[in-house]
Design a protein around this nucleic acid. Structure first.
Lengths: 255, 255
DNA sequence: TAGTGGTCTAGACCACCTC
DNA sequence: AGGTGGTCTAGACCACTAC
C-alpha cells in the first residue's frame, strides 16, 4: 500500500463519509477553511480533493454557498415503447411520460434547414452536406433542463411531406403525419453512447463538472430506406433508458 | 459577453486547436511551461485550464511525458443480437465479436456466492441479502481493460442447475446449460445508465479522469420469473451499444 | 541529467450569498 | 460585514521518462 497524496486522502475520507450518509440530514459539507484545519492541509490542497469529488459527480459547489452532496433522482425512459410501431402516438411519449410521473414538462422548439452533418448524412444515406430538415427540441422537467432532441429528415422526404419543414408543431405527430402520406416507419436502429458534455451541451443542459451525457441516436426506417435520424442528449445524472425484449410476462407477476 | 477567467481562455484556445486538428500529426501538446509563457499565465493557471480539458475527456496527461490528445476508437456492441433468444450462443458473443473485429480478447473469471445487493435482489425478486451466485468477468481487448460483467443467479436456480455455482467455465454457455435443464430464457429487460466511475471501477477499467462508464443491466426472464441479472460496466470512451427494433431491411440495401 | 508533469504551500484579491 | 467559494501567483520539492 503506497502512500497516497494528501489531496486524495482528503477526497477518500470525505467520499467515505458521503456514501455512509454522514451528510444526509443537512447536505452541506464543511467549508474549505474548516476542512483545511481538520486535515492540516492548505486550502488549495483541500480544494484539489473537493475537485476530485466534483469530477466524480458526488458533490457540487456554488460560490458563496459551499459544497453540497448531489441528489440522485432519475427519470426512466422506455426506449422500446417510446414510439409504438403499430400505434404511433402524438409526437413521442415525452409529454405523457413526464406528466404521468407527476412532473411538469416544458419544451422549446425550432425548425431549420441545413447541410447534413457527417454522422447524420451517413445514417440517412444521403450525401454529406446535402440539405436536411432539423426539428430541434430543448426539454425541461419542472424547469430543470433535461434533454435536447434533434431530429433530421432528408430533403427528398420534404417534397411529399412539406409540413416537416414548417416551423410549427405537427399536431398529430410527425410519425403519424408521415404514415398518412405513405411513409411508414417499420423499424429502428438505436445507438447509445456516453461522454463528457461539450461546453455547448453543458450550457444547454446546465450540467456542471462530473456529469456525463447519455447520447441516444435513433435512425428510423421505411421498408426501403432511412427516413429520419433523431439524436437525443440526456443529462446522465437524471436519466436512464430501458428496453424490453421478448416476453416479459414474468416481470409483472408478484411485486 | 462577460470576461472569462484566464484558465478558461487557455482551455478554450487549446480546445479549439484540438478540434481543428492542430495536433493531429504529433498528438503531443506543448509543455506546461511553454503554455505558461504563451498565455502569460502562471504554471498553475495553465494547469487549471489543462485540467478542464482532461475532465472533458479531450486529453490525457502522464507524468514525465506530457499531455496528449485522446484517441477515439470505439467498439460497437449489438445488444439486441447479443444473445439470440432462439439460438443461444456459446456464453455470449463477446469473444466472437471481438475476434471478428480483428482484435484479441482476453478475460479473467471468478465465481462466488454472496448476499444479494439491493439492486440485484430487487431485479431477481428475491429477499435482499439472500444468497445469490455471482459469475464475474473482467474483460480485455488487446490487453486494454474493456468492461466488467457481473451476472447474478438466484439461489433457487442452483438446486436444479448446480454447475452455475462451480468455479469453472460452462462450456456450452450458461444460457444453453439452463435451457437444457428446463429453464428457458424468453425475455430481457435492459437498463442503460451512465455516470462517472467509482474509484474501484476506475482501477479495474484503468480509466483516468474525464471518462464516464456506461452501465448496462440486463435482467433475463423465464416464463414465470426472473432468472438472472447481468450488470456490465463499459469504458464509455471505448464502447457504444445498439439495438435493432422492427424491420431493418432498408438498412442493408445500398451502402 | 534535463525536462516533463504531480503535489503542496502561503497569501492575495475577487465575486457571490446571507444576515 | 463576514463568510463562502473562485481565481491567480510564485516558488518549492518530488516522481517519472527520456537520452
Amino acid at each position: 500500500m503506497s502512500k497516497q497524496p494528501k489531496y486524495r486522502q482528503v477526497a477518500d475520507a470525505l467520499r467515505r463519509e458521503i456514501v455512509n450518509g454522514a451528510f444526509d440530514s443537512d447536505r452541506r459539507l464543511p467549508s474549505e477553511s474548516e476542512l483545511s484545519a481538520r486535515f492540516d492541509a492548505s486550502r488549495n490542497t483541500v480544494r484539489s480533493g473537493l475537485a476530485l469529488l466534483v469530477s466524480e459527480g458526488l458533490i457540487t459547489s456554488s460560490q458563496g454557498l459551499g459544497y453540497e452532496v448531489r441528489s440522485h433522482e432519475v427519470f426512466e425512459l422506455n426506449a422500446s415503447r417510446f414510439e409504438n410501431l403499430q400505434f404511433p402516438q402524438n409526437g413521442d411519449s415525452y409529454n405523457t411520460d413526464v406528466t404521468n410521473a407527476g412532473r411538469r414538462p416544458h419544451q422549446t422548439f425550432r425548425v431549420e434547414m441545413l447541410p447534413a452533418p457527417a454522422e447524420v448524412a451517413e445514417r440517412l444515406k444521403v450525401e454529406q452536406g446535402s440539405k436536411v430538415v432539423l426539428r430541434f427540441c430543448h426539454r425541461y422537467v419542472d424547469d430543470v433542463p433535461w434533454s435536447t432532441q434533434a431530429t433530421y429528415y432528408p430533403a427528398w422526404l420534404i417534397e411529399g411531406s412539406p409540413r416537416l419543414a414548417d416551423p410549427g408543431d405537427i399536431e398529430e405527430g410527425t410519425t403519424r403525419y408521415l404514415a398518412g402520406r405513405g411513409i411508414e416507419q417499420i423499424g429502428y436502429f438505436d445507438e447509445i453512447a456516453t461522454r463528457m458534455p461539450t461546453p455547448e451541451e453543458a450550457r444547454l443542459l446546465e450540467v456542471g463538472a462530473g456529469v456525463p451525457v447519455l447520447l441516444w441516436t435513433r435512425t428510423g426506417y421505411a421498408p426501403d430506406r432511412p427516413i429520419r435520424c433523431t439524436i437525443t442528449t440526456f443529462r446522465g445524472d437524471l436519466n436512464r433508458m430501458n428496453y424490453e425484449i421478448g416476453d416479459l410476462a414474468g416481470r409483472s407477476e408478484n411485486t
